[in-house]
Design a protein around this nucleic acid. Structure first.
Lengths: 347, 347
DNA sequence: CTGAAAGCGCTAACAT
DNA sequence: ATGTTAGCGCTTTCAG
């Protein structure tokens, strides 16, 4: 194991020379289990260790065409929601022996398109979260590069979906059962597929539950926008609100406190995602718990298995994974205010 | 821009053929500004676009030896503290045209050593945050690979340090000025360099401020450990505590609440880092605000400039950057309880 | 089972 | 300013 003059410069041919065989034999011994004799393999491995040989990934990639790395594209590394994803993909990439490349696409379709084009040349596959690209652009990209999208549903493109739409219905039900009938949905970016799905689900559910649900927004999915969202909710005279995400909800919590609106006595608040912080904000947030990290892991698994199967003729096992969410009730939701309130028009 | 039969398979020699020149000319036109005539450059660029040529990064790396990517090694991607770092390095890597590879070293020296060895072959340089490796191991690694360490001070190894030690003194001063004299420092991992630095600074400062500061711990730097830390602080009979980080402090806040210990009336709490959530936990946390993201940016800048200067004989400009912290006072600190014990009588 | 040889796509000396 | 010619380190036919 010792005695490497200066490491990294040791090539396969140094090893070959040292053992007295051809470079091809070394290559085989190191990468193709059964293609050489046991004794040969042992000698090569020993020599490689002895010399401190480290394969050059670039050279290997050049011939093999495989880089052993995957990329994760997220709209905003700043958003805690995506940290769960980063965690999941990073962990799983590592588990499969892949390097993990992280790219921030800045909530922009153009940046995303460029990043995808650039990075796809240096990775074996890509996971894209909450893509801002059009369905057709994604479908086209998927033909060029192994791709898994998260929170997006496109024909022929493998995807994992966090089913917040169904979850939102549960949340609405929860609010209805607390007596709320005037409810606001503080919506996220118009370009967000998840946002559209949720609103559609809410509309339908509201009808059958006999409550009124107003769509308000769109708002940027950030804490800062929470204040504006809170004010808008108040303006609508609702007694409860569902926020596009926890960031917005937590920002709103702050604003409500500033304005002397008590949560949940005067206003019930429901978030979405259950990000870090949702359990210790004030009051702790009732929210839709999303298996974010799991989504990252599943997406990575799908991608990796697709990469492996692309050699063999085996069809990719699962093309579409839908992950359930569940409602976590904490302290930000409560009964509808008894009467009057700040301007309940119906009472 | 159109008409690429099937993209990605277009090579530099296809472009060369199309223009009717040598591949080297194409290479130059595309990468060495002044080495070809303007008109030639234009023709090549046009042809490249026409054919949909995309350079193969692996091939490029093989000859040039440069991969245009840098790696960030962090002990735990799960820890929000590192979110800021990831953000900073990712943003700056991108700004400099580098890909950003993220590696979780699982708080383990062995994993870190392996990761460093593996990844260093495929990147131009590495940023290591809060390394668990020994000084000598890091110094050795720095000789092999361009390296910048964050929160670690080693001879000959470029580093950026977040000066929490000095900040801790401010925090202690703040507590002393509120009348606290029995104070606990709830310490982090023994292997943490920052932890050792802080405790040393606190010890000295405590003496000159005439207060008593007990070191308690070590504790894992997580929210879950916060409960144990809180209990330990109570056992010591202190009226104020400084936590190794915000995670621990926020966890402790929860525990204090459970035990009916009011913050800050019965116990003052100071965190460290000012992570996401420190401003909206309950009560909002007085903490040492650390320029984490900036640290990531600065480290990346140092690394990139070192990479560029490694060609020319110019010496690396800054080898050591110390970033100041400042105390952010929110609501978790207050006057020492009037009487003894944990029950305050005022009001 | 092993060796020889031909590149992968691109860059970098040398020529011209 | 452009063309020629070698490789970078490795994998992979194709022979033997």
């Amino acid at each position: 194991m010792r005695q490497d003059g200066d490491a990294s410069k040791v090539t396969i041919s140094d090893v070959a020379k040292s053992v007295g065989v051809a470079t091809s034999t070394v290559s085989r011994a190191l990468t193709q289990p059964g293609r050489v004799s046991e004794s040969m393999k042992a000698r090569v491995v020993a020599a490689a260790a002895e010399l401190g040989y480290r394969p050059n990934p670039q050279a290997r990639s050049l011939t093999s065409g495989r880089t052993h790395s995957i990329a994760l594209l997220v709209p905003d590394v700043t958003n805690p929601f995506y940290f769960g994803l980063i965690r999941g993909t990073q962990a799983q990439a590592k588990a499969h022996g892949y390097r993990h490349i992280l790219v921030d696409t800045e909530e922009s379709a153009e940046v995303e398109a460029t990043a995808l084009l650039e990075v796809s040349a240096s990775v074996d596959g890509v996971v894209i979260a909450a893509s801002r690209l059009s369905d057709s652009a994604l479908a086209a990209a998927a033909k060029q590069t192994p791709l898994v999208v998260i929170n997006r549903e496109i024909d022929q493109v493998p995807c994992v979906i966090i089913d917040t739409a169904t979850g939102m219905i549960q949340a609405l039900d929860h609010l209805a059962s607390l007596g709320h009938s005037e409810i606001a949905y503080l919506s996220g970016p118009a370009s967000s597929w998840s946002n559209r799905k949720r609103w559609r689900a809410l509309q339908q559910a509201a009808r059958s539950l006999g409550v009124t649900c107003h769509q308000v927004g769109p708002f940027a999915p950030t804490m800062q926008s929470g204040a504006a969202a809170a004010d808008a909710a108040v303006r609508y005279g609702v007694t409860a609100c569902l926020f596009f995400n926890d960031l917005l909800a937590i920002g709103a919590l702050k604003r409500f406190a500033e304005r002397g609106i008590r949560v949940p006595q005067d206003m019930s608040v429901v978030g979405c995602d259950d990000i870090f912080g949702a359990d210790f904000c004030n009051p702790p947030l009732t929210t839709l718990t999303a298996p974010i990290e799991q989504a990252g892991r599943v997406a990575t698994d799908m991608l990796v298995s697709a990469l492996h199967n692309s050699n063999t003729a085996v069809p990719v096992p699962r093309q579409r994974e839908k992950l359930p969410t569940h409602l976590t009730i904490r302290s930000s939701t409560g009964d509808r205010p008894a009467a009057s309130g700040k301007r309940a028009d119906s009472e």
